[in-house]
Design a protein around this nucleic acid. Structure first.
Lengths: 254, 254
DNA sequence: CGCTCACTTGAAGCAAATCAATTAGTGTGG
DNA sequence: CCACACTAATTGATTTGCTTCAAGTGAGCG
């Protein structure tokens, strides 16, 4: 196996000095253990917008963490219709759903220029046998993914278009804030079409709902740029009361 | 906590002799390791229909495996509406979504008389540090749960009522078959109301859809008893028939 | 400059929700 | 054992929120 030489630019983003390290896998690890984790991580060239990270039924070998940019994952049914199952922001792990079958049940595409950390799963699994904290953190992350999917399920099952879009925006806002981005002003990396697909609605419904939110003064949009004027109103619409401050409060969806 | 003495009847269902052991956690473990797992498992009295296994925001201490019967899990939003997030059959593990926060994001109720195996998570985690196979199996099960939730998501996002109910029944049929039950004749442990909630539909729609399936000769029902006459047709409805509403759509069955 | 693609907006259609009325089981107490 | 209440399920009539169809609009780009 040829080891790709690590560039200076890549070295700068080693786990230890990575700004995401308390959102990502290294959380809870001490310096020595982070170094050991660091050694197994491959940092490849960034993906451009539209490039595949992996494809459905590709063999599963690695877990990926987003370092910058964003990734969407989606499954394709036999009829060819596509369902987006996840949107991954910096610090989040992709590929955990592939462990049980050994191949990817979904495809993953970069929504913008995106750099990633690749962790060969076998090596990671071995390492986590030696480092209980790492082991625990992996469980926590997988558990969180399950809980996220379940609240997204709730959204789909019994929420109106307004509630779904509001919940989506609030969730995004919360996650961006945790990454030191603005919680009220950001660029959507997904198109209206993707958002609609993700939320189980059509592109027209998304567009109309954005327009209505805008006319109600809740937010303003300019294509992909979103400026939330009344985050509280949006949270109320999403079905979240302001007294719940837990970052993983049920109703806040992935 | 007083340790409840293990009854002879409980001993009979030790992992080693349990009929579910290749659907459940012991899969892939050798005899010695199964014995070690067995030692940490508590087998409490069965729950009666309607009894809670745990409640939302209860502290998370244990993972549970269903031995017989069935369990539903559900979350409650702040507005009080309830969303069923899971139906668990013998051999399946409950509580994996609670690891990351340390408390249960959902409640769990017995749908019928149900017996369970309780595994204190801390002990289980320690043990899995010592037994790589167990560790691996836990990852596989969690990964499967993620993949399951994601396909349920797809169902919710873009399937018609017919497709949802068909998919639900096919899924149930498949899981029952794996447990050596009939794949065409079984009793639903969920009420119409629960099924509707689980699939994001109303009780009336479930009832009407059952009636139509019956008039089309696909199945017959008598309250909770279901007899599937044409499993192939049901599978076609669940997976292959498109939700295309165009009159000339090739996938349309007259 | 004109082409394309993403988005917006309007009008019409439809699947499922809601409202409403019965019927069939289930349990309770006299 | 039967009347009574109560819940679960079915079936019909009506409404509605979202989709579909259709016709723009405007930004980005060769």
């Amino acid at each position: 196996m040829p080891t790709t030489p690590i560039k200076l630019s890549a070295l700068k983003t080693a786990c230890k000095s990575c700004s995401l390290h308390d959102l990502c896998l290294p959380l809870g690890l001490d310096m020595g253990d982070i170094d050991r984790l660091d050694e197994i991580i491959k940092r490849n060239r960034p993906l451009h917008k539209g490039e595949y990270l992996f494809n459905t039924s590709d063999e599963f070998t690695s877990i990926f963490a987003v370092r910058s940019g964003s990734i969407k994952t989606f499954t394709e049914s036999e009829q060819g219709d596509e369902q987006i199952t996840g949107l991954y922001l910096p610090g989040e792990l992709i590929g955990l759903d592939a462990i049980h079958s050994g191949s990817h049940p979904c495809s993953a595409i970069a929504l913008e220029t995106t750099s990633l950390c690749e962790m060969p799963f076998e090596t990671l699994e071995d390492l986590s046998g030696e480092i209980p904290e790492l082991h625990h953190q992996l469980f926590r992350i997988m558990s969180k993914e399950i809980a996220n999917d379940q609240s997204l399920l709730m959204l789909m099952a019994q929420k109106s278009a307004d509630e779904r879009l509001a919940a989506f925006l609030v969730n995004l806002s919360t996650r961006l804030k945790a990454r030191n981005f603005s919680e009220t002003e950001f660029n959507l990396s997904m198109s209206r079409k993707d958002i609609g697909n993700y939320l189980g609605l059509t592109i027209e419904t998304i567009s109309r709902t954005f327009s209505r939110f805008q006319s109600e003064g809740i937010l303003s949009t300019q294509r992909k740029y979103v400026n939330i004027h009344d985050l509280q109103a949006l949270k109320a619409l999403a079905g979240l009361s302001s007294n719940c401050t837990k970052p993983d409060c049920p109703g806040k969806t992935a």
